[in-house]
Design a protein around this nucleic acid. Structure first.
Lengths: 222, 222
DNA sequence: CGATATTTTGAAATAATTCAAAGGCAGTGG
DNA sequence: CCACTGCCTTTGAATTATTTCAAAATATCG
C-alpha cells in the first residue's frame, strides 16, 4: 500500500484507518458484499479466491505485507478473501480512500502502480497455469514465494498455505502437488524439514525448471 | 480508453495522438521494448501474448475497441502485442499521457477503472484455465466473445482469431479446441457457417456449460 | 485452378486425476 | 506422558482427459 509522506487528505485517510485482526479461516471480504473497505495487510497471509458454481475453487492470489485488498471498482467485491494464517490489517473506509485518490496524484500513482503489478502477476499466473507442467508450476511457485519472502536465509521458503491451497492456486490436485514436491525432493533440488517449509538446495536447477525468464520481474527489463 | 470531455491537459494529450495502422501479424509492441506509447484501439483485434523460453505461447488477452494497450508501469513492455486482423489505433506518447493522469482526477479514475476491469478479466482467465474442462473453456470463451461483440444478431459470434490463437488463450491444443467445438456442434448448441464465425443456438445450455455465474460480470452485483 | 495453410478427424501415448489406503503430525484428554 | 482422534500429506494403482503424432479434409490466396 502507498505509504504516508504527504498532504492533509492523506493524513485524514490514514487517521480513518482501523486495525482489524482475523484468525485463520476468517473472511476479510466475501463475494457480493459491498466493497466498502480497503485492507492494508500488516502481517499474515491472505488468499483471494473464487468458488465456482460446480464447487471448484481457484485461488487467484496469495497476499502478504505490504499488499492491500479491495481494489474492486465494482460496488461489490467479486471475490472471497480468506485469512490463511492469523492476519492483522489496517482497514480504510472507501470514501476517504477514493477522496485521497482524487486529490493526491502521488497517492493515485502509487495505487495505479500497485494495480499494474497485480495485473502483471495475474498474467504470470495465467501463463503458469495455461502452459506449464505440474513440476514446472511447483518450481515457479517456490520461486515466487522465495521472491516475496525477505527471509534472512534467502533459500529458505515458508509454505503457510495447505497443499489444497497450493493445488487450487496452481490448477492441480493435492496429490499432483505432493508428487511434484516429491520429485523435486528426489532430484535433490529442495529439501523439507517439515511439510510447511522447505529449503532450496539447487537454485539454478529450480530456476531452469521454473522458467525464471518467463515472468514479469525478469522481463521488460534493461 | 477514457474519452475526451474536459480540461486543457487532456486537449493537449489528445492533440498528441497519432493514427497508426497495423496489418495482420504486425506487432504493436514487443517484449522488452521501451514502453513509450499507449495505443487506443479503434478497430480490429489485438492479442497480448507471452512467449515462454520453451517455445510455449500464452495469449493473455484479446483486445478490441474500445480497449487500450500499454498499461505497463515498467519502463519496458513485458508482453508482445500482435495484430490478429488489420488494426487501426491512435498512438499516444507516454509523457503527455502520464501528465494527464497526474493532472486530471477524472482521467486518472477512468484509467484506474480500466485497469481494475482488466485485472478482473485476468482473474476470470485464471479461473477458466485453472479449473475447467476443454468444453467448458470453449463455452466460456464463446460467451465472452458474445458479450464483447455488440453484434446486431446477439447470438452470432465472430472468431477473428485462429484455432491456434484460441488454443493458446485457453491453455489447450488446437486439436482439443477443434474437438470441443465439434462436440458443442454435435450437441446442437452451436452451428458453424464457416470456421471463423458461429451461431449460438441454445444459449442457456451454453451458459450452463460455460458457468456464466462464475465470472466477474455476473458476480459482485446486486 | 493449383499450392499452401488451417482445420478436422483418428489412433496411440501420456500427464494428471480419481479413488483408495497408509503415514505423519498436532491437539486433547485420560 | 502417552494414547487416541482427526486432519493433512504422501504413496499406490487404475482411469481419464488431453496431448501427441499422423493423415485427411477444408479453406485461403495468388
Amino acid at each position: 500500500m502507498a505509504k504516508r509522506d504527504a498532504g492533509p487528505e492523506l493524513e485524514f485517510l490514514f487517521s480513518q484507518g482501523v486495525p482489524k485482526h482475523f484468525e485463520t479461516g476468517e473472511h476479510l471480504m466475501t463475494e457480493g458484499a459491498p466493497s466498502d473497505y480497503i485492507f492494508d495487510i500488516l502481517s499474515g497471509t491472505v488468499a483471494i479466491e473464487r468458488n465456482g458454481s460446480s464447487g471448484k475453487r481457484q485461488i487467484l492470489k496469495f497476499l502478504n505485507p505490504p499488499d492491500f485488498i479491495g481494489a474492486a471498482s465494482t460496488p461489490r467485491y467479486p471475490n472471497l478473501a480468506t485469512a490463511l494464517t492469523d492476519v492483522t490489517t489496517i482497514c480504510y473506509p472507501r470514501g476517504p480512500f477514493d477522496k485521497a485518490l482524487r486529490v493526491s496524484p502521488d497517492f493515485s500513482e502509487n495505487f495505479r502502480n500497485s494495480l499494474t503489478r497485480m495485473l502483471e502477476a495475474s498474467n504470470d499466473h495465467v501463463f503458469i497455469v495455461g502452459q506449464r507442467s505440474s513440476i514446472e508450476r511447483i518450481a515457479s511457485f517456490l520461486l515466487m514465494l522465495r521472491a516475496s519472502q525477505a527471509n534472512a536465509d534467502h533459500n529458505f521458503v515458508n509454505l503457510p498455505m495447505t497443499r489444497t491451497d497450493i493445488a487450487d492456486f496452481l490448477g492441480l490436485t493435492i496429490e499432483t502437488v505432493s508428487r511434484a514436491f516429491g520429485s523435486l525432493k528426489g532430484a535433490g533440488i529442495i529439501t523439507f524439514s517439515n511439510s510447511h517449509s522447505c529449503r532450496i538446495v539447487r537454485l539454478n536447477q529450480l530456476r531452469e525448471i521454473g522458467g525464471r525468464d518467463d515472468f514479469t520481474e525478469n522481463r521488460g527489463r534493461i
